[in-house]
Design a protein around this nucleic acid. Structure first.
Lengths: 139, 139
DNA sequence: TCGACGATGACGTCGCGTCAAGGTAA
DNA sequence: ATTACCTTGACGCGACGTCATCGTCG
């Protein structure tokens, strides 16, 4: 062995995995990481392999997985099942959901751009009892 | 006058403005609506014109305005300033921000679709100590 | 008297960011 | 003794949704 695999504290793991320390604490709190405890001072102690776990979490997040879905994936593996079928399913749903969101945002973008263009020719209004802002009310 | 403009309760206003009643309460709580109080039972009492206010809020929301921005618009009008310049500014920012979000989601969509395609040719893995899910790890 | 409506309040969503108050390590 | 780190906890975000518990109206 060229280097020992000694347990790491929150800060050490955070540096190793390139995430803020309180994110490590958050992941531990919601059960994504499983630290042991230092018997004297109560510090959380992580196996260095938890760093790979964090990498996995961040990678899954870039694919649109939520933390609870990631927890689900871990849970599948922990009872000896392959998480892969679920992973494929979730991704398919995410792709559909994201498609919808993209459409919504594109539609919002159109509405906003159309409004801005229309407003270009309209004067500012002074506030009165009937109208709040005729720009918005005109859309 | 063909009809009286009597004050309305939460439920009446909610029906008139086509929004859930607790949304009316929420708007009142954060200061977007200004009910008076029935002196005996404490019920919130809204002027029928509050219905137009709610319509304005919902219309502004479809243009991407947040409730705090809408509150800001109301506040401008309340002190006699035209809210229009601010409204134009906010919309320009929203358009830029939404452009970024659209790009992010489009990029996410590409990553997800690329992953799904790549995974089509890959078998499911069994869990072992080294890997959680090679599908995700392969991306 | 009862059922629909009113009131207030708290808690959940999601993934953290940001204090605060205190104990520990080097 | 200082300073950087550790602990737990609570609160904020946005715009509501969903109880729970209670008072009121018709």
């Amino acid at each position: 062995m060229t280097h020992a695999t000694t347990p790491m504290t929150v800060g050490e793991l955070a540096r190793a995995a390139q995430v803020p320390a309180h994110v490590v604490r958050y992941y531990a709190r919601i059960g994504l990481l499983h630290p042991t405890r230092h018997p004297y001072n109560g510090y959380k102690l992580f196996s260095p392999s938890e760093s790979r776990r964090i990498q996995f979490i961040r990678q899954a997040q870039t694919l649109g997985f939520s933390l609870s879905e990631i927890a689900d994936i871990f849970a599948q593996g922990a009872v000896g099942h392959s998480p892969c079928p679920r992973v494929r399913d979730i991704l398919k749903q995410r792709i559909e959901a994201n498609r919808k969101k993209l459409d919504e945002l594109a539609s919002l973008q159109s509405r906003m751009e159309a409004a801005l263009e229309k407003w270009a020719a309209m004067p500012d209004g002074v506030p009165d009892g009937e109208s709040v802002c005729h720009l918005i009310e005109s859309t």
